[in-house]
Nucleic acid binder design. Structure first.
Lengths: 196, 196
DNA sequence: CCAGATAGTTTCGCTTCGATACTATCGCTA
DNA sequence: TAGCGATAGTATCGAAGCGAAACTATCTGG
């Protein structure tokens, strides 16, 4: 068999200079796909929603916030949420301050099911990385997510502890509320990075 | 408003020790989702397929290999491929050596469309990372992908240049063929890591 | 008090996807 | 060399996901 001189789509111009970013991006997509597939219990969208409502702070556990987080429409997000409520994994709560807003909290069943999150396979794999590598991985992914969100004009979704709205250690100027220590690690739709 | 003492799903036990791996995994999924959505031209599955057939070596540009790469069934993979052929982005070629096997190559139109891949947003974001960070990001993702693939008993899909089947610089023992230089960066379904 | 904006939901139709069955070819073996 | 199991690709069907658009309820500003 004769060696190919030219492989379609793989010219010198395209690959020679530095396609490291391209390969890394494709690898990231591939890994995300691998980590999400093959679980019969919930669909990938349902898992993502359940994770989100378990991780988001009390101001962000709404269909609207989830729709922005998941880069989808409010209608689709509402459907996903409804299915989780029907499964007894989320619980509906009306907001006292805003009659339109509805907060969904994970039920004990929902939290129990998260213990069997198929994403655990990826978590285990990441735990095998050296500590410094994992931290740097987080930093790089975080920076990339900020940048992509900026390009897409989407909210950035960081944790309250890293947010520029946080003052005096535990007061959120954005929500005009004092946060509990546990809430500092929660996701917020109104997140704004500190030095930017 | 009173600060919450306890936020459901966010107990000390769950968050205190070290949830860095968990947060990183969720961030990775979120970033992948962000990077894939919002393009009207092709569906995410179609983009992934087009990318795959542009990146895979001549032994791996088949529906079967893509189905394994994409962690789906051969039937679904075949549908996706068919749609790309109908769009004039892939071209069907029968294998001379195996009457069952069919190779799909990207057409010039397919390669041109890849220039407008929505993944470019992520690529640009990754390019803004320091060089060393990008390299380490790739290494970490690669290691994680190997590990998850191992857990899922899925093929690992590395490039020929990193494969243990490669001998004497350009001879693949697995395919019993000499590879062109350009092929060393191509994906292969039969990839096996060197030191594993 | 009214108009526009916002939060959530519902409905509709299209697409995707996995499961299953089917055809054609390969390769081993008796 | 005939036959049988394995493999590659395809077609079909039903369930589910998703986006667009319409609808209700509530809030906010003039």
């Amino acid at each position: 068999m004769v060696a190919l001189r030219y492989l379609p789509g793989m010219t010198k111009e395209r690959d020679a200079p530095d396609n490291a970013a391209e390969h890394t991006a494709e690898l990231l997509i591939h890994l995300a796909r691998l980590a999400q597939t093959g679980d019969g219990r919930l669909t990938p969208a349902q898992w993502t929603a359940l994770r989100f409502f378990a991780r988001a702070n009390r101001f962000s556990r709404t269909p609207s916030a989830f729709s922005e987080f998941h880069a989808t429409t409010r209608g689709t997000a509402s459907q996903t949420v409804k299915s989780l409520v029907a499964l007894g994994l989320l619980e509906r709560h009306r907001s006292e301050s805003d009659g339109r807003s509805i907060r969904y909290d994970p039920t004990p069943e929902g939290r129990a099911l998260l213990e069997r999150d198929p994403l655990t396979a990826l978590v285990r794999a990441l735990e095998r990385l050296p500590d410094g590598d994992l931290r740097m991985l987080w930093r790089s992914l975080s920076a990339a997510a900020q940048e992509v969100a900026r390009q897409r004009e989407a909210p950035q979704f960081g944790t309250c502890g890293d947010c520029s709205h946080l003052a005096a250690g535990d007061y959120c100027r954005c929500a005009a509320a004092t946060l509990a220590i546990e809430e500092l690690g929660a996701l917020c739709v109104d997140f704004a990075p500190r030095s930017g």
